[in-house]
Design a protein around this nucleic acid. Structure first.
Lengths: 149, 149
DNA sequence: ATTATATAGTACGATATGGAACTAGTAAAG
DNA sequence: CTTTACTAGTTCCATATCGTACTATATAAT
């Protein structure tokens, strides 16, 4: 019983710590992102730029860990801003494909530069050391949670 | 330039990993929480139970890393469910104080038991080892970000 | 071929959250 | 004291997200 509770407390504490770090870092991101672009929108642009565009909304949704509803909404926003183009999938009548526009790519580059500049004031050598040190463990944890959800 | 980008990539990657873990763990939490109680609401109950109740909404908001708007909303929900009571602060005419009800305490206990049960299927020895290993680094990172926001 | 099942995306409604403006009360400056 | 600046909390509005239900297409079963 009390062992279970201790265990639960430890697990709780861990995820709480993760949650706070996420909260703080996301807020910092949001502040350095220009003109009211939400971090989640930027994450989509980033994903498309890094992993290659032409992906289906559902695949992006899975990668971003959000529902397809959310993806529909986010893509609409990005489309309205001219950062992406959405075309029907020629091989699947149900599907669509998402492409970055030049505007979108340029926007991402600028945003990254801006965020990097801001980060330089907050992330020092100690922080980079920590990141490097626990990166592997985090990756493993993420993978485990992802596989067992 | 490319050094900056590499650095940014590393930092990006780290926070992305954190974000995904947070997303997955929160989703698990949400699923094991009974009857549509949001994780953020539970976090408030948990905070009050662990840190002691009778706190002002603003102090809880700071601890939870949310705005006071959000806190007003969340407290209303918890109050409607009978988990908390909100009373005027006798020492400050502007302020209020938040107290857990017996219902609220009981609810928290049950929820923890339920969540702990679910967690047992997902968190194994390897995961606990990771948590234990990186706990200190995470704490330090959280503190640094918190101090420098 | 027809039917049943599964998947991609959308529409609608509900909720959590944040920003801006507001009220009421406190604290500090003169 | 009076005025000014600050703080606690609320309200209103906008947005991100999710759940449910729906349409359209694709795949499997028979």
């Amino acid at each position: 019983m009390s062992e279970d509770n201790d265990n639960a407390d430890e697990v709780f504490g861990f995820f709480t710590e993760i949650g706070i770090i996420n909260q703080l870092s996301t807020a910092m991101f949001a502040k350095s992102l220009p003109d009211g672009v939400h971090p989640s929108h930027f994450a989509i642009l980033n994903h498309l730029a890094r992993m290659g565009d032409g992906k289906a909304p559902m695949r992006i949704a899975s990668a971003m860990q959000v529902t397809k509803n959310t993806m529909t909404h986010s893509l609409k926003v990005l489309q309205d801003r001219g950062y992406i183009e959405v075309q029907p999938d020629p091989e699947d009548g149900r599907g669509k494909r998402v492409f970055l526009t030049e505007t979108g790519r340029a926007f991402r580059e600028e945003a990254i530069a801006l965020v990097a500049k801001e980060l330089r004031h907050v992330i020092g050598a100690d922080q980079r050391a920590i990141m490097h040190r626990i990166r592997g463990d985090l990756k493993q944890m993420r993978k485990h949670l992802d596989d067992n959800r």
